[in-house]
Every structure is written in C-alpha cells, then in structure tokens.
Amino acid sequence: MARKWTSITLLVLLAVAAFLTIMQLTETTPASESVFEQYSPIEPFRDEVPVRFATNWFHGAEFAGFYVAEKNGLYDELKLDVEFVEYKFGCDIAESLSSGVVDFALLSTPCFAGTSSDNLDIVAIAAIFQVEPAVFIVMDGSGIETVKDFVGKSIIVKNPYWERIIDRVLQAADISPDRVVKDRGAVDIKRFLLGEVDIWTGYAQNEPVEVDLSGYASKTIYAFDYGLNDYEGIIFTRSDIISERPDIVTAFLSASLRGWNIVVTNPELGLDAVDTFTTGLSIPFQRRSIRELIPYISTGIAPTGWIDSERWRTSCARWGIKNPDKYYTDSFLRRVYTERYLEIGNVLVDK
C-alpha cells in the first residue's frame, strides 16, 4: 500500500526542504558570486517595455515575489515597466489575457479548468505554488478531524471556484457532495468565528493566520492530503507574445523569479514590499502570511516556478482540460535558469 503522508509530516518536509535549499545556495556559492548566478544573464532592453500583469486576487502576500521584483528594481534593471492590474470581482482574467488587455496573468488550475480553454490563446510558463495551498479550517473541539467528518456539517461555498475544490476533495474521501450543507451566505469570516458555519475554506497563508491572530484555536485540514495537489499561482501569457517577443517573456519571468528568491531567503524584504502594495492588512498578519507560504513555493526538489510536464498533464486530466501540452511550455524556465543549476540538485527537472 502506498504511504499516505499526514499534513504535518508533509509540511515539515517542505519546510526542511526549503531550509536546505537556502543553505545550499549560501554554502556552495563563493562569497564573490551572487546567489542570482543560478539565473542566466538577461540583457536589458534599450527602451522601456510596458508590461501589464494581472493578479488573480487582491493585493496580498501571495504576490510578494512580484512586489519585490518591482520595489527592488529587478524589473527596472531590464527596462520593464510593469503595471500591476489588481483583481476585480467579475473580471475574467483568462479572457483579458487572451484578448490582449494584459500581457501576463496569474490563474489557478481550477480557474483555468473553468474557462473555455479551447477558445483561449494562453500558455502557462511557470507556477509559483508548487504545493496546493487550499485548506479547510475548523474550530478546535468541533469534532471534525478529517474530511470524513464533514458529513452533515455546514461549509462555506465562496464561489464556483471553491465549489469545484470542495466537491473534488469530498469525492476523494468517497463522500457525495450532497451530504454536506453548502452555505452560500455572506463570505465574512466573522460568521465562522461566531459559529454560524462549521467549516471555512481558504488558503494556508491567509484564513488560518487570520483566525489564529483573532485569538481562536482552530485546526487546518489540507486539500493536498486528499489528492488535490495542483500547481497554483500559474503565470500565463499568450502564444503571440511567445512567438513574437520571447525576449519579453524571458525578462519578465527572470525578474519575477528573482523576486521570489529574495522572499524565500529574506522574508522581511518580502514583508516590506507587500506593505507597499497593500492597505488594511496588519504587519503581524502579513509577516505570518509570508512565512506560511514559503514552504509551498520553495520545496528544495525543483527550481522556484518549475512545472513538471507529467504532473501538469495529470493535473489537467483531473480537471478535464484537454490537450494539456497546448497550454504549457518549460522553454522559458530553461532560459531563465542556468544549465548547471538545473543539472545539480533539482530532482524533478527533466534532463
């Protein structure tokens, strides 16, 4: 029988892997060399190149690496003038990208699956989250220990995207979705804190942190424990940009991944950048949020942003996405990272 890792075990392993990655970079790189020498040199453009980049949610820690690239001048170094297009309710990000409103955009796997992908001209070039961050939060003492205990309990359904995730996880636990009480009421976490909803949905770096900082004791149940381990925070662009301006794709991806490397190795710099872009979020929340997301991004077994071809195909098949190779390329990741870096210590990279 295949071993099933518990959420605690897997998170510990991820944290250790991230730590070892940082240690490897600091211990094996000579003092005279920059840690960025894992990246191939990129020539800056002669003139400024405008780039419009759409995030898939409101400003927050999950975009810290991009903020760092902006605030620390990594985009500027390459003469990229990056405009962040913040998420708005009702906005179809995939359509905005495909139609040319933006040049790059972030999408989750379920959101990509929910688009009419056959009619969209978009291609995945990297994935920031290597581990699925979707979680379910329950209060201590609720009697809910696993997804099996969701039967008869109320669970917040924030939108169709979350309903797809909930149904996938329930089905993985051999539970029919109609055996839970789907609450489609107000998406205000105070309802959970007041006991109006038994199970709250969210991301590991957000809602569990908010509950804890509010003074409540809770338990987190991880979607990846139930087979839902898709790439998230996927960077997409269009095929016409890939064919006509591959230099822009390479430059944007290189600067962005360098920004994420800074967040992983120095979370406080990430905090400083996030604080520049966000309003209304406390420093303690942002600090915790950044530290919680790092193990999901830097696993120590593949470069930051990597998309493994077989895992991509499996994930697409799980969500009913046809012709997965049409919507993915690793060619820009291979241009961004040096050949030596890909050869040494990255076990998930196809040689």
Rank of each mutant, 00 (worst) to 15 (best):
D118Q: 13
L78H: 03
D121L: 08
V349E: 08
S7E: 09
I262K: 09
V349K: 03
G195M: 07
A61P: 10
L293P: 03
E27T: 14
R258S: 08
V82A: 09
C316H: 00
I199K: 01
G73T: 10
Y231Q: 10
Y226Q: 01
P303E: 08
A54G: 01
E48L: 13
T6Q: 13
F53T: 01
L257M: 10
P160E: 07
L78R: 04
Y216G: 00
S108T: 14
N346Q: 15
A54W: 00
F112H: 07
L11C: 10
K71R: 15
R191I: 09
D47F: 11
F150P: 01
R334I: 07
L228F: 13
D247F: 10
A54E: 03
D188A: 11
L13C: 10
S256M: 12
A61D: 04
S315G: 09
G320A: 13
S331Y: 06
V151D: 05
S117I: 11
T109A: 14
G259Y: 05
Y161K: 09
R287A: 14
W312G: 06
V68R: 03
K219N: 10
I199V: 14
A134N: 12
I156S: 10
R291N: 12
A126S: 15
F84H: 08
V138P: 04
R313F: 02
V157W: 03
I93Y: 01
S176F: 06
I235S: 00
G215N: 09
F129H: 15
E95T: 14
F58D: 03
M139R: 14
T278I: 09
A217T: 13
S142A: 12
S96C: 12
G300T: 08
L193N: 04
Y328G: 00
V51Y: 06
D225A: 15
V35C: 04
F63A: 02
R168C: 06
I234N: 02
K88V: 13
T21L: 13
D118K: 14
R258T: 02
A255V: 10
T220Q: 03
I290R: 07
K322R: 15
E83Y: 06
S331T: 08
K322L: 14
P160F: 07
A2F: 09
V169D: 04
I156H: 07
Q38P: 01
L120T: 00
E244S: 14
G345S: 11
Q24I: 12
S315L: 11
R313M: 09
P246T: 03
I165T: 04
K158I: 11
G141S: 09
S315I: 12
R313H: 07
S108Q: 06
L194A: 15
G141M: 10
Q171K: 14
V101A: 13
K148R: 14
V209A: 04
H59K: 12
D149Q: 01
T28P: 02
G114I: 04
P324Y: 05
S117W: 05
K79F: 06
G202H: 04
V123S: 01
L170T: 00
I297Y: 00
D121K: 05
P133D: 10
